[in-house]
Amino acid sequence: MKKYAISGLLVLSLVAGGASLAGDEFEAAWQAADDKRKEAAGMQSEWRDTKKMLDKAKQAAEKGDIDTAMSLVAMAHEQAADGIVQAEREAVMWITRVPR
């Protein structure tokens, strides 16, 4: 009986530990994506939906749906990175469109 209780506790603490580990991982990934978003904004190249994705990711994480949360963060991160690449390319290319 005691043995079961101990292993039960062990399982519980593992699950809880796992959840908070995933939580830490989420926080870090979220922060990295939000930093990228701000970097894109600083180059006047933030996309419309990136912030929304990050807000939704927070909501999903609060509900414990880490999978959805992490995939939204990944999408937001990619958008921000694409916006930065776009701004870098456009810093050179914009001038090719000016009528002369």
Partner: peptide, 22 residues
Amino acid sequence: GKQFYYTKRGQLNFSCFDCHGT
């Protein structure tokens, strides 16, 4: 202001001029 006008932006990658010029 001029650079802003000709710079492609957003997920759809359009500049103002792409729509209102070209």
